[in-house]
Design a protein around this nucleic acid. Structure first.
Ligand SMILES: [Mn+2]
Ligand SMILES: [Mn+2]
Ligand SMILES: [Zn+2]
Ligand SMILES: [Zn+2]
Lengths: 132, 132
DNA sequence: TAAGGTATGATAATGATAATCATTACTGCA
DNA sequence: TGCAGTAATGATTATCATTATCATACCTTA
């Protein structure tokens, strides 16, 4: 019964694993065309959606509105500047215990989480106070 | 030097405070027209952006791609079903300590954070396993 | 009041994602 | 092996939130 993966889904999974970082659907589309003949953009979106529902791919939305995808096994979070968009990776993640609790307290099967901090980098804060 | 707020920004702040919940820019636009004559949609977006940079309003992006806004003072997070979109509010938030640390370790002025869990609600998980 | 700067709003442009739909590939069975 | 039914694919179009334009209204100050 467990949805077997399509060829496209397998390719996307493999590429995401090789990359080891998050990538947008559009960029993924370009990458895939680079490797094989005939990959439709619609299929990229469909596959990512299916993989997300399968619990193996996660997504988050950037400030510019585009979503980026990665394997769920990557637990990486960021600190992002609201002004210039500079994004600093964070090592720590203090939510795993809560995730485990929720998994039982709420009737929910949790696949992944997003965590991101927003503010101003020192440079932008400086310019901001200067009245720019 | 601190940017004084415009009339539109004040109205939006007031409405967000009155609501006490997150709301999209589009819905905010409708609400504002309901109260005052002549509020442009562009101004709503501009004001929200300014208030975000001012550190008093926060935003997060829903699965359908639209952003919702609220006062930063509201520290509310969610557990969302990837299939049906059902969203359950969460009470706890275990990231404040980390936020304080980051504020000093990284050279960054942090205004707010987003935290969200994704997975399948019990109903959708059931249907999913059934092969739907 | 006149000048300069800022805010506003109507409108068009942008761009990522979702929906269509005809075609192709696969699966199980006669 | 041949066929019917079903799922997957891809080219294309539609959708829709957000952003960019630009002319106008407003406000501050000399
Ligand atoms: Mn994490
Ligand atoms: Mn929180
Ligand atoms: Zn910055
Ligand atoms: Zn659900």
């Amino acid at each position: 019964m467990e949805a077997q993966r399509t060829r496209s889904q397998e390719q996307i999974l493999q590429l995401l694993g090789k990359l080891g970082r998050e990538i947008s659907a559009q960029a993924l589309y370009v990458e895939l065309r680079h490797h094989r003949q005939g990959v439709g953009l619609a299929t990229v979106y469909r596959s990512l959606e299916a993989l997300k529902l399968g619990g193996v791919v996660q997504a988050r939305t950037l400030a510019n509105g585009e979503a980026v995808y990665s394997l769920v096994q990557e637990d990486k979070h960021h600190l992002t500047c609201l002004q210039c968009g500079a994004s600093v990776p964070i090592d720590a993640c203090p939510v795993h215990e809560l995730e485990a609790q929720l998994q039982t307290s709420k009737r929910f099967r949790i696949y992944y989480h997003t965590l991101e901090f927003f503010g101003l980098c020192s440079l932008c804060e400086h310019q901001h106070l200067a009245g720019a």
